[in-house]
Amino acid sequence: MIDIQLLSTPLSISACETFVESPEAGGAVVFIGTVRNKTANKAVVRLEFEAYTPMAIREMEKIAQTALDKFAVSKISIHHHVGILNIGELPVVIAVSAPHRGAAFDACEFCIDSLKQTVPIWKKEIFEDGEVWVAAHP
Protein backbone atom coordinates (compact mmCIF):
# COMPACT_ATOMS: atom_id res chain seq x y z
CA MET A 1 0.00 0.00 0.00
CA ILE A 2 1.29 3.42 -0.92
CA ASP A 3 0.42 7.01 -0.01
CA ILE A 4 1.81 9.78 -2.22
CA GLN A 5 1.13 13.45 -1.59
CA LEU A 6 2.39 16.74 -2.97
CA LEU A 7 1.41 19.43 -0.49
CA SER A 8 1.61 23.21 -0.19
CA THR A 9 0.82 22.96 3.54
CA PRO A 10 3.47 21.98 6.16
CA LEU A 11 4.34 18.27 6.04
CA SER A 12 3.28 16.06 8.94
CA ILE A 13 5.77 13.39 10.03
CA SER A 14 3.05 11.68 12.07
CA ALA A 15 0.73 11.49 9.04
CA CYS A 16 3.40 9.45 7.19
CA GLU A 17 4.12 7.32 10.29
CA THR A 18 0.43 6.65 10.85
CA PHE A 19 -0.12 5.58 7.24
CA VAL A 20 2.59 2.91 7.41
CA GLU A 21 1.37 1.37 10.68
CA SER A 22 0.61 -2.29 10.11
CA PRO A 23 0.09 -5.36 12.29
CA GLU A 24 2.67 -7.26 10.20
CA ALA A 25 5.32 -4.54 10.67
CA GLY A 26 8.26 -5.12 12.98
CA GLY A 27 9.33 -1.53 12.54
CA ALA A 28 9.25 1.58 10.41
CA VAL A 29 12.00 3.81 8.99
CA VAL A 30 11.27 7.49 8.49
CA PHE A 31 13.43 9.85 6.43
CA ILE A 32 12.88 13.52 7.19
CA GLY A 33 14.42 15.99 4.76
CA THR A 34 15.11 19.42 6.28
CA VAL A 35 16.18 22.75 4.81
CA ARG A 36 19.89 23.32 5.56
CA ASN A 37 21.17 26.79 6.47
CA LYS A 38 24.03 26.82 3.97
CA THR A 39 25.32 25.46 0.68
CA ALA A 40 29.10 25.38 0.10
CA ASN A 41 29.52 27.79 3.04
CA LYS A 42 27.05 30.27 1.59
CA ALA A 43 24.15 31.23 3.87
CA VAL A 44 20.78 30.13 2.51
CA VAL A 45 17.82 32.41 3.28
CA ARG A 46 15.04 30.11 2.08
CA LEU A 47 14.17 27.50 -0.55
CA GLU A 48 11.42 27.55 -3.14
CA PHE A 49 10.08 24.27 -4.52
CA GLU A 50 7.96 23.87 -7.61
CA ALA A 51 6.65 20.74 -9.31
CA TYR A 52 5.12 19.50 -12.51
CA THR A 53 2.31 18.16 -10.36
CA PRO A 54 0.70 15.30 -12.34
CA MET A 55 4.05 13.90 -13.43
CA ALA A 56 5.66 14.36 -9.99
CA ILE A 57 2.85 12.36 -8.39
CA ARG A 58 3.09 9.69 -11.08
CA GLU A 59 6.87 9.37 -10.70
CA MET A 60 6.63 9.14 -6.90
CA GLU A 61 3.96 6.43 -7.28
CA LYS A 62 6.29 4.52 -9.63
CA ILE A 63 9.15 4.75 -7.12
CA ALA A 64 6.98 3.51 -4.25
CA GLN A 65 5.59 0.68 -6.38
CA THR A 66 9.10 -0.35 -7.47
CA ALA A 67 10.22 -0.33 -3.82
CA LEU A 68 7.25 -2.53 -2.84
CA ASP A 69 8.19 -5.00 -5.61
CA LYS A 70 11.91 -4.92 -4.85
CA PHE A 71 12.00 -5.04 -1.03
CA ALA A 72 10.04 -7.04 1.55
CA VAL A 73 8.19 -4.01 2.92
CA SER A 74 4.59 -3.45 3.97
CA LYS A 75 3.61 0.19 3.38
CA ILE A 76 5.23 3.33 1.97
CA SER A 77 4.26 6.96 2.44
CA ILE A 78 5.99 9.78 0.51
CA HIS A 79 4.99 13.40 1.12
CA HIS A 80 6.75 16.28 -0.68
CA HIS A 81 6.25 19.98 -0.21
CA VAL A 82 5.84 22.65 -2.90
CA GLY A 83 6.23 26.36 -2.21
CA ILE A 84 8.50 28.40 0.06
CA LEU A 85 10.37 26.79 2.95
CA ASN A 86 12.58 28.33 5.62
CA ILE A 87 15.60 26.83 7.41
CA GLY A 88 14.67 23.72 9.39
CA GLU A 89 11.34 23.17 7.62
CA LEU A 90 10.53 19.92 5.80
CA PRO A 91 10.68 19.47 2.01
CA VAL A 92 10.15 15.70 2.14
CA VAL A 93 9.09 12.92 4.52
CA ILE A 94 9.28 9.23 3.60
CA ALA A 95 8.05 6.44 5.88
CA VAL A 96 8.43 2.72 5.20
CA SER A 97 7.25 -0.16 7.37
CA ALA A 98 8.35 -3.77 7.06
CA PRO A 99 8.27 -7.05 8.98
CA HIS A 100 12.07 -6.75 9.41
CA ARG A 101 14.08 -3.53 9.67
CA GLY A 102 16.72 -4.21 6.99
CA ALA A 103 14.22 -4.05 4.15
CA ALA A 104 12.67 -0.87 5.58
CA PHE A 105 16.07 0.88 5.70
CA ASP A 106 16.93 -0.27 2.16
CA ALA A 107 13.55 0.70 0.70
CA CYS A 108 13.58 4.12 2.39
CA GLU A 109 17.04 4.87 0.99
CA PHE A 110 15.96 3.65 -2.46
CA CYS A 111 12.92 5.96 -2.35
CA ILE A 112 14.81 9.16 -1.44
CA ASP A 113 17.68 8.41 -3.87
CA SER A 114 15.24 7.73 -6.74
CA LEU A 115 13.10 10.76 -5.88
CA LYS A 116 16.13 13.03 -6.21
CA GLN A 117 16.95 11.54 -9.62
CA THR A 118 13.62 11.31 -11.43
CA VAL A 119 10.76 13.26 -9.82
CA PRO A 120 10.08 16.55 -11.65
CA ILE A 121 10.42 18.87 -8.66
CA TRP A 122 12.77 21.85 -8.70
CA LYS A 123 14.44 23.64 -5.82
CA LYS A 124 15.65 27.22 -5.93
CA GLU A 125 18.09 28.37 -3.25
CA ILE A 126 17.69 31.99 -2.24
CA PHE A 127 20.83 33.67 -0.85
CA GLU A 128 21.26 37.21 0.51
CA ASP A 129 22.78 38.26 -2.81
CA GLY A 130 21.09 36.08 -5.41
CA GLU A 131 19.40 32.80 -6.20
CA VAL A 132 20.16 29.58 -8.03
CA TRP A 133 18.23 26.58 -9.38
CA VAL A 134 19.90 23.64 -7.64
CA ALA A 135 21.71 21.10 -9.88
CA ALA A 136 20.80 22.95 -13.09
CA HIS A 137 24.41 23.39 -14.19
CA PRO A 138 27.34 20.95 -14.00
Partner: peptide, 25 residues
Protein backbone atom coordinates in the same frame (compact mmCIF):
# COMPACT_ATOMS: atom_id res chain seq x y z
CA UNK B 1 3.65 13.00 -18.07
CA UNK B 2 6.17 10.27 -19.00
CA UNK B 3 9.83 10.83 -19.85
CA UNK B 4 10.13 10.65 -23.63
CA UNK B 5 13.09 9.04 -25.34
CA UNK B 6 14.69 10.38 -28.53
CA UNK B 7 12.45 8.28 -30.80
CA UNK B 8 9.13 9.17 -29.13
CA UNK B 9 6.78 10.76 -31.69
CA UNK B 10 5.10 13.99 -30.67
CA UNK B 11 1.46 14.41 -31.67
CA UNK B 12 -0.73 17.53 -31.77
CA UNK B 13 -2.68 16.96 -28.56
CA UNK B 14 0.10 15.50 -26.44
CA UNK B 15 0.98 17.31 -23.23
CA UNK B 16 4.64 18.22 -23.67
CA UNK B 17 6.87 19.57 -20.89
CA UNK B 18 10.51 20.63 -20.71
CA UNK B 19 12.21 18.95 -17.76
CA UNK B 20 15.49 20.61 -16.73
CA UNK B 21 17.67 18.82 -14.09
CA UNK B 22 15.41 17.90 -11.17
CA UNK B 23 16.33 18.78 -7.57
CA UNK B 24 13.56 17.61 -5.26
CA UNK B 25 14.03 16.21 -1.78
Amino acid sequence: TEYGNDATIVKAHDEIALIPPVSGG
